[in-house]
Design a binder for these strands. Sequence first.
DNA 1: TGCCCGTTATGAAAAATTTTCAGGACGACA
DNA 2: TGTCGTCCTGAAAATTTTTCATAACGGGCA
Lengths: 326, 326
Amino acid sequence: MKPTAKQVAHAAGVSIAAVSRAFTPGASINPEKKKKIFAVAEEIGYISPARRTAKAVAASTITLVAGDLHNPFYPLVLDTLARHLQESERQLLVYALPTDCNIDAVTDQVLAVRPSGIIVTSASLTSNMARACRQNQIKAVLLNRIQRDMRINAVSCDNYQGGRDIGRLLLERGYQRIGLIGGVANTSTHAERVRGFRDVLAEAGRTIHVQASGNYQYEIAKQAVVHLLSAIHPPDAIFCCNDIMALAVIDAAKERGLRIPKDLAVAGFDDIPMASWSSYQLTTIRQPVERMVQEAVSLIDDPNIKASDYGSTRMLSGTLVMRAST
Amino acid sequence: MKPTAKQVAHAAGVSIAAVSRAFTPGASINPEKKKKIFAVAEEIGYISPARRTAKAVAASTITLVAGDLHNPFYPLVLDTLARHLQESERQLLVYALPTDCNIDAVTDQVLAVRPSGIIVTSASLTSNMARACRQNQIKAVLLNRIQRDMRINAVSCDNYQGGRDIGRLLLERGYQRIGLIGGVANTSTHAERVRGFRDVLAEAGRTIHVQASGNYQYEIAKQAVVHLLSAIHPPDAIFCCNDIMALAVIDAAKERGLRIPKDLAVAGFDDIPMASWSSYQLTTIRQPVERMVQEAVSLIDDPNIKASDYGSTRMLSGTLVMRAST
DNA sequence: TGCCCGTTATGAAAAATTTTCAGGACGACA
DNA sequence: TGTCGTCCTGAAAATTTTTCATAACGGGCA
């Protein structure tokens, strides 16, 4: 038997009308009573008709919370995801967060729609939002991010291995003063890529010669690298934690008259379209965007995986793409 | 008095239950009867409760149909639009169309949601879709496109003037053999930019020295320009109808050992972020993205403008951004 | 052909839900 | 202290959805 408003009313000790009003936005009802009714409804499993239809509409929707759309990697993800969902006749809702803006600012908006799933590529998912998702039975997936502490599913490229691959390549090519331009400090992508890179250097008895942060942005990376290059012993190779920063490094190096890769080798991470442009010819790690998106969607679709599950992480390996910049 | 199912039933000569069923997806009802009921409901102005809530949900939604997300100009638009809508607590639904794919392929999906408005930046809005929008009282706005024949509102940069500005600049700088790389043939952006460019040359008693199509894409433009540059009298300046094609031209020129702008001047259109990167330093026309998005949204919001209106076009002027490539 | 059976379509009636209406409680204010 | 206005409430009315019994149709089969 489907739960009805009558049952809820009886259990909560209020009139049927009150139940109806509780579920009608803007209706005149005591907030406390409303809360009581919600609690009872939750317990019995009652959903008001209006909610039912709204739910049906939102069920075919997936929300993408994207961070920095100025990094061409994310439009790539967005594009892939959009096509993927179109095939299965689903809708894609997009939120673009300013880099400096916390995801909590849009939590309410995102949850108000009650999509069947949320894919987050933004810098970080706060525990606030993770909790809210669990409470609302909305599945959240981190894409290109991992936060182990938060019981949340994630899909990511194997950033550690990617960092290692780049590190090994630079060692094999015989570069002596290997530098690093890091991304956003508290992100898993940054941490893992750096860790892999550092590890492989350490195994060869080497260390990172110089290091700076580029915040994953072109402009900041460019300013940062100018300092590195004007040092007395400038690096002869630089690994950048993503591609746009690598492009910035190449631009800055060329401005100083350095030849790539003779005077300075540069490697990136992501393989955005510009990486293959002939002005750059950037050696980088290609992230398997297509497969990452597929996995993310399948994590949401898989009925065996519950919103309340402990987070599992699917890690896909990237591909080293060698071009002329190293 | 609000129209009720009873009235519809009476007017259509069916039972109240039939009316309810007509508005319930998947309910067992004769399609002809359903159509009849829809017609009567339309006339009386009856909306079923389920539709009412679904409508309320969708009312705060705007759909963006984007074409080529590989052109960084569109992520720029997307980003701006997303922020804009977040401020007014609205949702943004995104469809990404493959370049070769007709918009009709997603028409049904787009309209099924019944958003309050649709913004189309894709290559072209077919008359099919335009009609469907009018029928469904959904406001459509073309962004960065104009189609005068279709009674549809549009917001666009003044492409004609932009083309003129570039043309004048190249003339003033004294370039002798001025070439052109065009975009997608049947788009207004292409047509207008070329027209402005051609006009200003004609006024100076000059013609376009060589011309090719780059389809608004990096790869195609690059291939096209290789031919132009290996001619006996290669151009000494090229206007590209958008920035990525201009970047492709610069890359191709540099590969041939040409110096920019000494051996070849290049100008683009859009002012995407990469245009200002030091490898390119591209002279271009900056499109007022912020204002264009604002106008597009206001066209949708303005209650005085009906979905059935004759199309009005709001044209905003771009800014000539002079950099080192000319 | 005639019978059986399953599917689809239907209105009446029942059930469920929303909305209206007529207070009651409470505080502000004269 | 009385009056007014606002907010909240349940009963009842209005509205809509769902159930139920039945009719109509078509295909398979003796």
